[in-house]
Design a protein around this nucleic acid. Sequence first.
RNA 1: UGGGGUGUCGUCCAGUGGCAGGACACAUGACUCUGGAUCAUGGAACCGGGGUUCGAAUCCCUGCACCCCAGCCA
Length: 568
Amino acid sequence: METRDRTPNEKTGEAPVDFIREIIAEDNRTAKHQGRVATRFPPEPNGYLHIGHAKAICLNFSVAVENRGTCNLRFDDTNPTKEETEYVDAIQEDIRWLGFDWEDRLYYASDYFERLYEYAVQLIQQGDAYVCSLTPDQIREYRGTLTEKGRESPYRTRTVEENLDLFGRMRAGEFEDGAHVLRAKIDMGSPNLNMRDPTIYRIRRAHHHRTGEAWCIYPMYDFTHCLSDSIERITHSLCSLEFEDHRPLYDWFLDRLDVFHPQQIEFARLNLNYTVLSKRKLRQLVTEKHVSGWDDPRMPTLRGLRRRGYTPETIRRFCDRIGVAKRDSVVDIELLEHALREDLNRTSPRAMGVLRPVRLVIENYPEDQVEEMELVNNPEDPAAGTRMVPFSRVLYIERDDFRVDPPKKFFRLAPGREVRLRAAYLVTCTGFTQDEATGEVTEIRCTYDPATRGGSPPDGRRVKGTLHWISARHAVEAEVRLYDRLFAAENPNKGDDFLAHLNPRSLEVLEGCYVEPGLANVSPGDRFQFERLGYFCVDPDVRAGRPVFNRSVTLRDTWAKIEKGKKG
RNA sequence: UGGGGUGUCGUCCAGUGGCAGGACACAUGACUCUGGAUCAUGGAACCGGGGUUCGAAUCCCUGCACCCCAGCCA
């Protein structure tokens, strides 16, 4: 695994550690667990993993690796009505893609159902749990409110024998769904609602993705999670902030049962601006078809990011950079984009692609001549070598690269102006034709200077603009999908309708784009930097002979900024 | 009005009694056959009010703001 790059500490020169790594280091120092470090990533298989999960995955797995410890993958599958094998497969695939390995430590909370049942029996025997026959509404009513204490259930005083009998019959399927629940007997007067006799088992006749119909009672999260951690001898159980209130309960079960006691530590989950990360909202985007699926390149899911062209390295590096702390925060999406550019700049081969083509005719270039121009594949990586690209009399250039009436600081092509065609020749614009009705430029004409082959004028004259181009005769047609952020509002969660903030221009599909002939036979997942435009990734949707590219992210664009600034 | 948390540049993260630092973003300049990359420079913050101390982001007191909790979800 690559070295971490967290902010260096001035005094020690070492990467500072977050508060969790600090706690673990201290536990190692005091040999709390004989120096053993065991973490786990515990997803519920009821949805696809997203960038927020990546933060937790990176934390749990990295902390384990750094301490020569282990990180288990455990599916928290205690609610059969919501969980499906489709998700357990997808989750494993995504974690592997991210680059983490749980080796043979794949577990399911449902593996522990029998032991959990025995623990529940023990609780009953100790007088720490009872079967409650209140209805859900009554339970809620008895629970009290944030400011008022709760009242004890009339069933709270059932004898151990009666509870044992009832609980056994719950398991045996003698009761209707919802007729009874098993509750921990703690304190209805606790200011912490979680301690007001929480439900630990409910009757629910539903097909479970692993245990099938074997059970009709299922344990609740609070009971299951701490004991699963204990069974796996997890040393540090990392979870998000909203479980802070649950920690006393986590500890209570382990103390009452007198079993191995992991430490729960909470950290702030990731929030990203211009993004929603709640499973409910992501699901809604999919089911209501605001996106094409869980892997739509605009989705913050790992599958979406992958299809967009993100690399595992980018995501891991991003997670390293955002750090781990307890305060709620909203990370700027630009930091993610920066991580992507940084990675792709280093690794992506360059290519030329003209997205919105306009014909450029070189009047003094021989009609049938073709020259092969040598282009550098990656200036950041000399080992990537060079390639030959055909050049001829009729080319396509980017519509944006020509202006009839150029604004200040525009140093691309315009009537009378000279620019460089990348790695080819210097050309001077001699004229253009326009559509009479629309005013749209239909063709640009120019002459070239044969002495500038390769792009370097022998007289050393400076040319400010360099344009990318595609030889019309050799052009490969492509579809290009221009993606932008899915939401137009910085915080789409604000207000009661996040869909109202959808960015209407989050996807623009361009047909009739042209790319270098070398890109005729690309494969899904191949990444390129289209010079001067951005990073692009080949989509799985390739149709016969016509590649489809997704724009992962644009290049930083100083000119766009200048233009935008003028208008604003 | 109960309980649990959190407040440091625009954003994220450090700093744990001794010059408030890094990254992203922003701005300026250098360089450049990608208006990319790279390099240099700059502006920019300790929630408020008291107190302790030679010295406070850090310790104490007191306000304030924000987040989470009333599933038989996780």
